[in-house]
């Protein structure tokens, strides 16, 4: 991480996060984030080779549910909140052809 954090590519990160930023914002965030990351450099000085990561504040496992229906909301409830609707049935978006099969990428 050392030198890396000094050249955060904010434009690339903003694109990943789908945020439009103007030039002023880019330079401001670049400064802020570099400062924060410089501070976080302290983590690289800790020997963590034998430490396992903690992802949760609670240590429970196997929280699952039985395969029983709980009911759905009505279509009108869904579409009432939707910004754009098609035929009172579908949520409308500009045309998009998924890169790949119609399924997860």
């Amino acid at each position: 991480m050392n030198e890396k954090s000094q050249d955060v590519d904010i434009r690339h990160i903003a694109n990943l996060a789908r945020l439009n930023l103007n030039d002023g914002e880019i330079s401001r965030y670049e400064t802020d984030i570099n400062a924060i990351l410089s501070y976080a450099e302290q983590l690289s000085k800790v020997d963590l080779s034998d430490v396992s990561p903690t992802a949760h504040a609670a240590s429970i496992t196997n929280v699952i549910r039985s395969d029983e229906e709980r009911g759905s909301m009505t279509r009108s409830e869904l579409l009432d909140n939707a910004p754009d609707v098609l035929d009172d049935e579908l949520i409308k978006v500009p045309v998009v052809i998924r890169h790949g099969s119609e399924g997860p990428a």
Binding site: L78, L86, D87, E89, L90, I91, K92, V93, P94, V95, V96, I97, R98, E102, G103, P104
Partner: peptide, 17 residues
């Protein structure tokens, strides 16, 4: 988890979740 199903038209798409 699976994703929703999109139907594509000329100018827009409609999504069924």
């Amino acid at each position: 988890e699976d994703v929703a199903k999109s139907t594509h038209f000329k100018q827009y798409s409609g999504i069924d979740f």
